[in-house]
């Protein structure tokens, strides 16, 4: 464990807490893409298949359980909760995310560490996570204005993978035989996808104005 990875995990945790805060405090999920939440639930479920077979550390196990439980809780809340689900932007959240699932799965069959059940699903979860934010970014683009908590949620979600890139660079130089090209390349693509969001987020922060995405 190194400081970059710990910072990345904490940033990821903060993004989840901000999302939960937004939904429970405002009793509204306006501006949140249900499709992105479903994709993230799928990412965690397919990545942590080894949750009960490979014990790495208490920290690792607890964080995996937190990520799985929180992503499922958000999806259930956005689908079931009678108050929250009324504020879901159903007609804006129309990204065909099934294509993202299919593309990631096909790519995982072609490019993986080992052609085994667990490795293919691990690669699938890595590719899917890189694309999972797309429905959310499209929804924000369409809705134009971004409320503070939603903006912070997406910002921290993007920042956590940037910390992981620093972690991979650090591990590359400090550990022999460290090679996680799949995660590195995919993590890079994931972070780049946030680039324009980060730009507009920074502009709104600098001008101390409400965040506006160009329509």
């Amino acid at each position: 464990m190194n400081i970059f990875r710990f910072a990345g995990d904490m940033t990821h945790l903060i993004s989840i807490l901000v999302l939960l805060l937004k939904i429970y405090a405002t009793k509204s999920c306006s501006g949140i893409s249900l499709k992105t939440q479903e994709l993230y639930a799928l990412v965690f479920l397919t990545r942590y298949l080894d949750l009960f077979t490979d014990f790495i550390s208490v920290y690792n196990t607890i964080m995996k359980l937190v990520f799985i439980a929180s992503s499922l809780a958000v999806v259930c809340c956005m689908r079931m909760h009678r108050v929250v689900r009324r504020s879901y932007d159903k007609d804006l959240d129309t990204f065909r995310h099934y294509f993202l699932i299919l593309a990631s799965f096909v790519l995982a069959l072609l490019v993986n560490e080992k052609f085994t059940f667990q490795e293919i699903f691990w690669a699938f979860s890595i590719y899917l996570e890189a694309l999972a934010i797309l429905p959310q970014l499209v929804l924000l683009q369409r809705s134009g204005n971004v409320d503070n908590l939603t903006g912070q949620y997406v910002f921290f979600l993007g920042a956590y993978r940037a910390f992981y890139i620093l972690n991979w660079i650090y591990r590359y130089f400090t550990e022999q035989h460290f090679s996680r090209w799949i995660a590195c390349v995919s993590g890079l693509v994931q972070t780049v996808l946030y680039a324009d969001f980060f730009y507009y987020y920074f502009i709104s922060w600098k001008n101390n104005a409400k965040m506006q995405l160009p329509a």
């Binding site: 990875r5 995990d9 990821h12 990545r47 080894d50 490979d54 790495i56 690792n60 964080m63 995996k64 990520f67 560490e113 691990w122 992981y164 972690n167 022999q176 035989h177 460290f178 090679s179 996680r180 995660a183």
Partner: peptide, 10 residues
């Protein structure tokens, strides 16, 4: 043979 790393990251 290269030591195969484990999925020790989240």
């Amino acid at each position: 043979r290269e030591q195969s790393w484990s999925h020790d990251e989240l």
